[in-house]
Design a protein around this nucleic acid. Structure first.
Lengths: 139, 139
DNA sequence: GTAGTTGCAAACGCTTTGCGGCATA
DNA sequence: TATGCCGCAAAGCGTTTGCAACTAC
């Protein structure tokens, strides 16, 4: 799993540093929810790989540019990232604790809306759907 | 139009200052797109009512608490606000210039998704749907 | 007069940048 | 060794807070 990503990076001439490998590993083993830079830094720390926050931000930027992760906007002022998986999905956000969860919507009914909206002057390339509410703990 | 809002505020014991009245006026005459604090400050300046940025932020907070405006998250790190109108609607965002437009979706088909999602541990109270793309000028 | 409101300055949280040094290939 | 990567410090941006002065009612 990780090998494909690592190999692809190496083939492009990028280096496989300790931090980079660990971050990719963390993303691979963290399918549940998008994580922020601060959270990622904490995870690295917990894994005995204390990386500077600048490095974390730069690495997230890098992985995003490489299409390995994608930015997820939770609307709480923090950027979050998750693995760039194939499946189109959306997110649920807790209004109190800002927890984020992924939701798989079997058959995204937004396609009709998209067509309707696209007739306007805007050229639509994508959409994001967020559900807001309270998670189990915060209810 | 404005009178109702102003009267309601006055009845609650809040004061109708020059800046507050002007901001409400600006929101009323600006149905097209949600605006940010910085944009609002610029509009005030243009109307010969130079308000401090702190005041602008506080006033937006206040109007939001009073339910007169609602926060709109464009995902560009800036909070935006629009009049709290009855109609449920969504937004289109330009990926290049961050312009925001409102879209009225006749019959929001998200209700089914909502029910499906609500069965999970999250207690869903709302949702936000944003379309991304390029506006006419940026294409 | 008394609360609600304002401006100023300073701080905040998250993110980015500049630069010298380090380490992967 | 050469380029990519790193940490540190500092700055950037949008936003918030503390405090004293002000003003609408």
């Amino acid at each position: 799993m990780a090998h494909q990503i690592l190999k692809a990076l190496k083939d492009k001439g990028f280096r496989l540093t300790k931090v980079r490998k660990l971050i990719i590993e963390i993303f691979l083993s963290n399918s549940a929810a998008p994580i922020s830079a601060v959270e990622l830094k904490a995870r690295l720390m917990a894994a005995d790989a204390d990386a500077n926050k600048t490095t974390v931000y730069r690495e997230l930027d890098f992985l995003s540019e490489q299409g390995i992760v994608v930015e997820v906007n939770a609307g709480d002022g923090k950027k979050r990232y998750e693995l760039n998986r194939d499946g189109h999905h959306h997110h649920i956000l807790c209004l109190r604790c800002s927890a984020v969860e992924c939701v798989t919507v079997d058959n995204c009914t937004l396609q009709e809306e998209l067509k309707r909206v696209d007739s306007k002057s805007f050229k639509i390339t994508g959409h994001s759907l967020n559900f807001f509410g309270l998670c189990e703990e915060c209810q």
